[in-house]
């Protein structure tokens, strides 16, 4: 876990200002999607070593949800972006 996170809205902040939700690559399925799709979305999580995209919320700051792309092994943070922009890009 990183010590400092660069919030795109607030600048460099300590990890204590954030809360972590988990995998950011999951996209909420359509209500009509298959049982498997919903099961995967709600229950199935990988625990990868290496590059990972996670949803973090800047709870004590701007309260925005962010996509933190980081390495779970080296703890390097590659990018932090606003989750809404990512969601729009993903065409949600």
């Amino acid at each position: 876990m990183a010590s400092l996170i660069h919030c795109p809205h607030c600048g460099v902040r300590p990890k204590e200002e954030f809360s972590i939700r988990g995998d950011a690559s999951l996209i909420r399925p359509d209500p009509e999607a298959s049982d498997e799709a919903w099961n995967d979305y709600v229950h199935i999580r990988s625990n990868p070593r290496g590059r990972y995209r996670e949803h973090w919320q800047h709870v004590a700051g701007c309260r925005r949800w962010l996509v933190v792309e980081r390495d779970t092994f080296t703890h390097e943070v590659f990018a932090v972006t606003d989750a809404a922009s990512s969601a729009r890009e993903a065409g949600r």
Binding site: R21, W65, A83, R92
Partner: peptide, 17 residues
Amino acid sequence: GGVMSHMEYCAQVHWPD
């Protein structure tokens, strides 16, 4: 606090439009 974060997640990630 949890509901507020949940709403923010829904608004920003699920339904940003």
